[in-house]
Amino acid sequence: MKDNKLSNAQIAWRAAQDIADGAYVNLGIGFPEMVARFAPEGREAIFHTENGVLNFGEAPAEGEEDWDLINAGKKAITLKPGAAFFHHADSFAMVRGGHLDVAILGAYEVAETGDLANWSTGRGGVPAVGGAMDLVHGARRIAVVTEHVTKDGRPKLVERCSLPLTGVGCVTRVYTSLAVIDIDANRFVLREKLAHISLEALQALTGAKLVIEGGVSDLVVPEI
């Protein structure tokens, strides 16, 4: 562990442990894509990408890319046996229609109400939303993987989001570089934290009250 916090790969590993056998999963572009690398042995998860592929696999070797076969992040992918192609309206029927078990997304801010801000820093420039606003309403479980605080040390878990919202009351679990936190009845409920960090220190890095309910486990992740 570096700097006494989890790396992005370790956060992704922890999130992957909660993906059930047989789950249909959408991963947000960027850092959440790493979750696919850590799907536990013996469980078959099927990954969905907005641009119309179910059951895709690893990236191809360099030089082997087929640029007609990409994921929502425009990165080259491969297919697993039993993959399927479909058009965009079917793809978002899978999303909004409640057919995905879990979507794992990145975040700028998450509020204790489950509100998510992950599409606009509100600072001008070119706005871009992609499929995030659809995803937050579709999957049965919306999880977030994120650093616990911003690069300049401000909490990303807050009482109310200050940035433009992606969705209202949608996030159910947050995997951070320090803790695993559920959102239940408009509260952050702490489930796991790194053993070396005290509750007081974790609370000081969190912009809303952490509720303890039925005990807190150590967050244990392998070196990756």
């Binding site: 907005e50 965009h88 978002f92 999303v95 909004r96 070119v126 939303v129 992609g130 499929g131």
Partner: peptide
């Protein structure tokens, strides 16, 4: 796109991806 957008020379209607697909 970025240069023309920031110069105010091109219009943008931003639509969530699934909404764009379903509108079409």
């Amino acid at each position: 796109f970025t240069e023309r957008y920031l110069a105010g020379e091109i219009g943008l209607e931003l639509v969530p991806q699934g909404t764009l697909a379903e509108r079409i």
